[in-house]
């Protein structure tokens, strides 16, 4: 007998953890009572809940109903105390469900049962919403950016400005829960731009100068709706290789910005099931240049 009691204790701990509010001893007593002290009622209740057989409240004693209620609240306590979807919660939830359905069939203390059920549901939803998941995505953006260069001559230096458009196909990953997302995106860049002198007497003009490069972006965003709309901030490293033609006059040379630049941008994303529309608007750090992009993507 003692050995059996010991096993019940171990199993209880294994299955449910220790519900602090009710105390392990108290819960164990109730579980023991449920299993051993009311075999007929428990068997009827088991069939009623698991097999959907009809049960009548009058077939169960007041003492038994109160026992079910205590077990129900005991498992509820265990769940409500959890800060994450730990194994204890995973194991307690089915037990909680069972006793909730049992009490529902008996229509016993319905208001209290409903109130506790609502609390548990809300709590589990919050825990679920806090859970981070890894998601992968692929996208295609249409981007525009400007870059500076200088035409250096024997007597003066003329500022050159290139306005570019290009496509950025890429992939990314994000770690996200219901409210927050952290993302990393990698994309290639293929485009072209037109360059001309910003001001001055010297003329320099070229169109459709090819640009090739890539972008690495790290961002954090807030998911603002249940459909997945997101707004956030992103920092990115942009690498662009674009060679402007050297003037035929050997007195002049062209110096260009460094190929690597850093940008900070504001992005927004709207999800339509698996697909999404994204916009990005930002500024290059330490250079007077603005970057924007609009694109479509798919989440996997």
């Amino acid at each position: 007998m003692k050995k059996r009691g010991g096993w019940v204790w171990v199993i209880t701990l294994f299955l449910c953890g220790v519900p602090e509010s009710f105390g392990a001893d108290q819960m164990n007593d109730w579980i023991k009572a449920f299993n051993k002290n009311h075999p007929v009622e428990t068997a009827k209740m088991r069939n009623g809940v698991n097999r959907g057989e009809e049960i009548k409240g009058s077939d169960f004693s007041q003492e038994y109903k109160e026992l079910l209620y205590n077990l129900y609240q005991g498992y509820a306590s265990r769940i409500i105390e959890s800060k994450s979807l730990d194994p204890g919660v995973t194991k307690s939830t089915p037990q909680f469900e069972f006793f909730k359905k049992a009490l529902g069939k008996l229509e016993y203390r319905e208001d209290e049962v409903d109130s506790t059920s609502d609390r548990i549901r809300s709590h589990l939803t919050q825990l679920e919403e806090k859970k981070y998941r890894l998601r992968w995505r692929a996208f295609l953006h249409y981007m525009s950016w400007q870059s500076q260069a200088a035409l250096v001559g024997p007597f003066e230096t003329t500022s050159l400005l290139t306005t570019n458009l290009g496509f950025c196909p890429g992939v990314g990953a994000s770690l996200e829960n219901r409210f927050w997302a952290l993302s990393l995106d990698l994309s290639g860049l293929y485009g072209s731009g037109g360059v001309s002198a910003v001001q001055g007497l010297v003329e320099y003009q070229q169109s459709q100068v090819p640009a090739l490069g890539g972008r690495i972006a790290i961002g954090g965003g807030r998911i603002v709706s249940s459909s997945g709309s997101e707004v956030g901030l992103r920092g990115s490293l942009l690498f662009v290789r674009q060679n402007l033609t050297k003037p035929s006059d050997s007195q002049y040379s062209v110096t260009q910005d460094k190929m690597i630049s850093y940008t900070v941008s504001l992005f927004s994303r709207w999800r339509f099931n698996r697909f999404y529309l994204e916009t990005d608007f930002g500024r290059t750090v330490a250079r007077p240049s603005t970057l924007w992009s609009i694109g479509l993507g798919s989440v996997f």
Partner: peptide, 15 residues
């Protein structure tokens, strides 16, 4: 008893 306890409590699925 242990098994019965488990069977009893295997649900009803998810929450």
């Amino acid at each position: 008893t242990f098994l019965n306890l488990i069977l009893l409590l295997v649900p009803i699925q998810s929450f």
